[in-house]
Amino acid sequence: MSEYEGTCGPGTGELTLDGSVPVVEITGLWTKYGRTVVHQDLNLEIEQGEIMSIVGGSGTGKTTLLRQMLGLERPARGCVRVFGEDISEIDSDRLQELRNHWGMLFQQGALYSALTVFENIAQPMRELHVLPEDLVHDAVLLKMNMVGLGPEHANKMPSDLSGGMVKRVALARALALEPKLLFLDEPTAGLDPDLSEAFVALIKSLHRELGLTVVMVTHDLDTLFALSTRIAVLAEKHVIALGPLQDLLKVDHPFIKEFFLGDRGRRALEALEEKTSTEP
């Protein structure tokens, strides 16, 4: 018997893409691994067009939460709706449609190691089986251009790429079908500060240009402060605080105090203020 107890009401049977319902809606979610409870009655709503960051100590189930939104893992109890549809009850056609509306950037890139950069990005487009090859060709090169990769990299294999380039290619692949919802798992982990700043700027500009909704898990405070419109803090098995950075700084909770206002946090905040004051 499955442990899952659906608590979602009936869905409409159609994806709701116009933002009239939250893009992601999590209610009463429980996650258990054996006897360990990771999430207990967790609620979270992500609105269209925002950049939502999920933060928390290690082992608080941030990545698990992301995987549950993607339907890669099932919660023990509770409801995860994406574009208004219950992700664990959805029929396979609708799920396929849904999958064309979201993109995921995995922490290690997860590029197909047997395919070249070009083929990696072309894969989701070719999978539709309708786009003519010359259109795919141009669209892939445009996507590469958007993430700052020149056409000279198109024929390289993933094993020949540096860490920063792998992330860019993975981002281009995640964006291949112009998704409305983009998941980022530690987008700047393993990048040097320069690259990570450039990557943040890239995500920011793509967010503006494509009108994406972004859900991001990150440990990097610079990335967090520079990108997020709202931040959800996971601790004590649920979301203890949710809101824009300025609001979170006022919350009186030991984890939040330590996380945002510790030495690291203060340095990052100062750097952010400096940058916003020098920017025109």
Binding site: E97, N100, H101, L128, V130, L131, P132, L177, E178
Partner: peptide, 16 residues
């Protein structure tokens, strides 16, 4: 004129 709409049914074939 979005990729999802283009991919539906015979839209792409008709346009081509």
């Amino acid at each position: 004129w979005q990729v999802h709409a283009l991919a539906q049914g015979k839209a792409m074939a008709t346009i081509t």
